[in-house]
Design a protein around this nucleic acid. Structure first.
Length: 321
DNA sequence: AACGCGACCTGCGAGC
DNA sequence: TGCTCGCAGGTCGCGT
């Protein structure tokens, strides 16, 4: 479910509620939610208990919490040593990280409960709730970034990246994102534009909703061959992705139901702003403004739905577009 | 390298 | 009422 804006909403919530606190107890209610932690439940819990959360970092849809195993201020003069391990979270299709008071009943799909050191006016539990279990938590090493830049968006960025996220590219909201690198790699591909936008190794953070929204805004078709894209067109679709994700973030993310919520359980309001995704059979808003009636079309592509306007996002013809 | 597919899961609404 | 089907915001790994 969550794409970059939704994960960033969660990151900001965790900065407010969890940063600096110590994990005091860990309950894994469903081991499937830590299946990516190869060493199992005991190792997972044992390593987390007593760890202090230094920061919350995000690249694309991956979120991780660099950890320290020493109490804050243990060595008053010496600077904080660089963290070596992080708690990784990926929300998959239906994962939620929720701050809850201990008095609140367990959610139906509560999978992992982290108890936190007491903090005035703040809930004492961080809960991982996940209906479909495609997401999960696990521990991962922090390794130097290949380019020496920050691993991702953080309050105090470090040139370290979670090993399990090292294979994905920077996302369009990352200040170190390089359009030139993106464009060169895009042109070298023999594939369609939407497939490329969804490839987290090329550009991260974009999922099925925002890919369709970005393509609509840029007036480009999902099947447009990437090796024919002009620089201006690539820039247009990337800027469109940036814009739609920035707008979604400002609205608190996109949610169609209670499945996607921020750390306080509130839904985002971006659904009403969607121009393409989920609008099958409804008028294309841009065409309507120009006095043209064009109905948005839904097609199967990559085993999922793609929404386009047949008038302003025409399908590329063979060799021409 | 690219692509298609299955696997990993639960739940909801539509249709019969 | 209950059954099956298709569908859902993601990622990973395998075969061709």
């Amino acid at each position: 479910m969550p794409e970059l804006p939704e994960v960033e909403v969660v990151r900001r919530g965790l900065v407010n509620w969890v940063r600096g606190r110590t994990i005091t107890a860990v309950e894994v209610l469903d081991p499937r939610s830590i299946r990516r932690h190869a060493l199992g439940v005991e190792d997972f819990a044992g390593n987390l208990e007593g760890a202090r959360v230094l920061d919350i970092v995000r690249r694309g849809k991956f979120l991780w919490l660099p950890l320290a195993d020493t109490p804050a201020g243990a060595s008053s003069a010496a600077p904080e040593p660089a963290p070596a391990v992080a708690l990784m979270a990926h929300l998959g299709m239906s994962g939620q990280l929720l701050m809850q008071d201990g008095a609140v009943a367990d959610e139906k799909h509560l999978k992992i409960r982290l108890r936190l050191s007491a903090a005035a006016g703040m809930p004492d539990q961080l809960r991982f709730v996940d209906q479909r279990i495609f997401g999960g938590l696990f521990l991962t090493a922090l390794i130097p970034t290949p380019d020496g830049g920050p691993g991702g968006l953080a309050e105090t960025p470090l040139p370290l990246i979670a090993e399990e996220a090292a294979h994905i590219a920077r996302d369009p909201l990352d200040p170190h994102f390089s359009f030139d690198v993106f464009y060169r790699r895009l042109r070298a591909r023999k594939t369609g534009l939407k497939r490329a936008l969804l490839d987290q190794a090329l550009v991260s953070g974009i999922g099925n909703i925002y890919a369709d929204e970005a393509l609509w805004l840029a007036k480009l078709h999902y099947a447009r061959p990437t090796d024919t894209l002009r620089r201006s067109e690539a820039l247009r679709v990337l800027d469109a992705a940036r814009q739609v994700m920035t707008d979604a973030l400002a609205a608190g993310g996109t949610s169609f139901d209670s499945l996607y919520v921020n750390v306080n359980g509130a839904s985002g309001y971006f659904e009403r702003s969607l121009n393409a995704y989920g609008r099958e059979g409804q008028e294309c808003r841009r065409c309507a403004e120009a006095g043209i009636v064009s109905l948005m079309k839904r097609e199967q592509f990559m085993n999922r739905s793609s929404y386009t306007c047949p008038v302003c996002q025409p399908r590329p013809r063979n060799g021409r577009w």
